[in-house]
Amino acid sequence: MLRLWPERIRVGWFPGRCLLAGGEGAALELAGAMTPSALLAGLAGLPRRRPGAILDILLSDSAAELVHLPWQASVQRPDALRLYALAAFARQGMAVGEAHAIQTAYRHYGMDGIAYAVGRGWLEELAQGLQAQGLVLGSVVPLSIEAYWRGKRPATGRTLMLLQEDGRISLHAYQGRQLLMLDAEAVAGQPEQACRRLLRRAAMVDAAVQQFYYRPAGTLPDLGQTIAAGFAGAEVQRLPWDGGSGR
């Protein structure tokens, strides 16, 4: 008997929309905030999949708590990493605790990483709702974590990565493979204004940027010209929302 591997479905979930992997224009419009019920209602309208299909979600940074996590050689065990991450969240005034699922991401040994947290009850509601639709929750990874973990970066030189969502723009700064800065700006009006504020803060770290990647989530306004004006000497490259050739 031929045994089929489970089907995998990858989506990007952002406020008000669910992007389908395989095309920047393929999207489901969602009602409401970043709640499991909003996503489940949108997914119910998709063509039926094989039972047991696995759903991998690239999650809006707005639905998670994220913090820059400096490397500590003495902190390696899972329980110690969790406590270390909790301390980092607390220093930033983030209300993260036992009600959250916490993960730490260190892509390179000896270099800084990122910790992220998502509510346990939120995850459980999502997993149960998907199960009722015949789907299995495979992974939930915030956009910044995916960009940090899988993004292509040169071994030397300064690189910036800008992640553009409807209501938020996030920015990573790297020296080679070392994470220097994790920053974000809310978008209340024109995205170009929020982008310029972020770029000014990045320029305070170091204006000598060689590579600048940016990823708009779906069909958002292109910020390429704004970026190029702020960092005239950098090579600016737009990537698809799911990373595309930047991996």
Rank of each mutant, 00 (worst) to 15 (best):
Q92A: 08
L179W: 00
D206M: 00
L137F: 13
L220Q: 08
L135G: 06
W149M: 15
S139W: 09
Q178K: 12
F14N: 01
E125I: 06
A117R: 08
L126E: 07
G151R: 03
A127Q: 10
R49Y: 15
A80F: 13
L40H: 04
H108M: 02
M161N: 10
S139Y: 14
Y109H: 15
A63T: 03
A38E: 06
L46F: 13
A207V: 10
R197T: 12
G134D: 04
R177Q: 14
A188P: 15
A90D: 02
Y109G: 14
K152Q: 15
G134F: 08
G12Q: 03
Y214P: 00
A73F: 03
L180W: 04
A105T: 12
P47N: 00
R215Q: 15
L180D: 12
E235I: 08
A117P: 01
A207F: 06
E165Q: 00
A53N: 12
R158C: 06
G176T: 14
H100Q: 07
T219C: 05
G243F: 01
A147V: 11
A27K: 11
R10I: 08
G224N: 13
L28P: 00
R49S: 14
S144P: 02
A203T: 06
L30E: 02
V11F: 05
D183E: 07
S37W: 06
T156P: 03
G22V: 04
L223D: 04
R3T: 09
G218L: 09
L30F: 10
G25N: 15
A63H: 03
G244V: 02
V75L: 06
D112S: 12
V67A: 03
A99Q: 14
G23Y: 04
V140H: 12
V187W: 12
G134V: 02
M204H: 12
L28R: 05
G32M: 02
R120G: 01
T226Q: 07
R196L: 12
R120C: 09
C18I: 10
A188L: 15
L28W: 11
P216A: 07
A21N: 10
A101G: 07
G151P: 03
H172R: 05
I102H: 03
S37D: 12
L171Q: 08
T104D: 07
P15W: 09
E124F: 13
P191S: 01
A203Q: 12
R153P: 02
V75K: 10
A188R: 10
A229S: 15
G230R: 05
R82C: 08
